[in-house]
């Protein structure tokens, strides 16, 4: 965790209540345990924002993207925080959101695609061990025509941990040519762990492409055996399999060396699952 905080200290601090972004900002912004933060990206602006939750707290994050704005938002939970995130996107804006829960956490995301050709991509991971409880709630609103969304949330629970995912894709009556995808994939590592997943579609337009899917499975015993036959210990084989399962989401933030540090922290957590 220290590594991650060290890396973040090198970023621009977003410590006020409002972060206004004009133009293209190369250097990432970072906020640690924000109670309330509003991110406003002006038309055509682009930026990357990292939010880290290290203490149990309530956190409200509002994001507003003007026309053509681009934002990459990465959220990391290492303490049980309650986070409410809302993202409003105007025409042609792009938002790429990554959320990684490495402890109990309760995060809800409300995405509103309010202008044509807006695009939202959300990737989420939770790793729940012991008696932890991870919750990801998502509502993606296609409020106008010609928007795209793609959400995939992967959950792993061991011990007596509980994971919950609920995701709603809402397509308004006039939101024709909507392209919305949602995936929830989960692995249970023990008999006592529990994951519930609730994907929902609410569609009021008739010319749309919407898909959703949810799976809850177990570790692949054949793959564990195969890796052990090549000399890996059982715990290494399990960790590698979990890494393989969630790695693409954990490392998608694209900010190095932050990504690598988050992956390392996640790997350490996997050993405990």
């Amino acid at each position: 965790m220290e590594t991650i905080l060290d890396i973040i200290r090198g970023f621009r601090a977003a410590d006020g209540e409002v972060l206004r972004i004009d133009g293209a900002v190369a250097e990432p912004f970072a906020a640690v345990d924000p109670r309330k933060l509003r991110v406003e990206a002006a038309a055509g602006a682009s930026a990357r924002v990292v939010v880290v939750h290290t203490a149990p707290d309530l956190s409200v994050l509002e994001v507003e993207l003007a026309e053509g704005a681009q934002l990459e938002l990465t959220e990391l939970f290492t303490a049980e925080a309650f986070a409410e995130v809302s993202v409003k996107q105007a025409a042609r804006s792009r938002c790429r959101l990554t959320t990684v829960q490495l402890s109990s956490a309760n995060a809800s995301y409300r995405i509103d695609l309010d202008g044509a050709d807006a695009e939202n991509e959300l990737g989420g991971v939770f790793l729940a061990a012991g008696s932890e409880h991870c919750v990801v709630k998502l509502r993606t609103g296609h409020n106008v025509a010609d928007c795209r969304s793609n959400s995939y949330v992967k959950g792993v629970a061991g011990g007596q941990a509980v994971g919950e995912f609920s995701g709603l894709v809402y397509v308004a009556p006039d939101a024709q040519r909507t392209d919305a995808r949602q995936q929830s994939r989960n692995i249970l590592l023990s008999e006592t762990a529990r994951i519930t997943t609730q994907p929902q579609l609410e569609i009021y337009a008739d010319d749309v492409k919407c898909s959703h899917g949810a799976t809850v499975g177990q570790m692949d015993a054949e793959a564990i055996l195969y890796m052990r036959q090549r000399g890996l210990s059982e715990s290494q084989a399990r960790r590698l399999q979990i890494e393989g399962f969630v790695g693409d989401v954990v490392t998608r933030c694209g900010i190095e060396p932050l990504c690598g540090a988050i992956m390392e922290l996640a790997s350490a957590k996997m050993e405990k699952l």
């Binding site: 692949d220 054949e222 793959a223 055996l225 195969y226 890796m227 036959q229 090549r230 000399g231 890996l232 210990s233 290494q236 590698l240 399999q241 890494e243 393989g244 399962f245 969630v246 790695g247 693409d248």
Partner: peptide, 26 residues
């Protein structure tokens, strides 16, 4: 070494990463 009749697929785990662990464990 056992060469498997049906080698197992391990999604998301690269050959390089897998072999590096295996070789170094040995």
């Amino acid at each position: 070494f056992l060469g498997f009749q049906y080698p197992v697929e391990i999604p998301g785990v690269t050959m390089a990463n897998f072999m590096k662990l295996a070789v170094n464990e040995q």
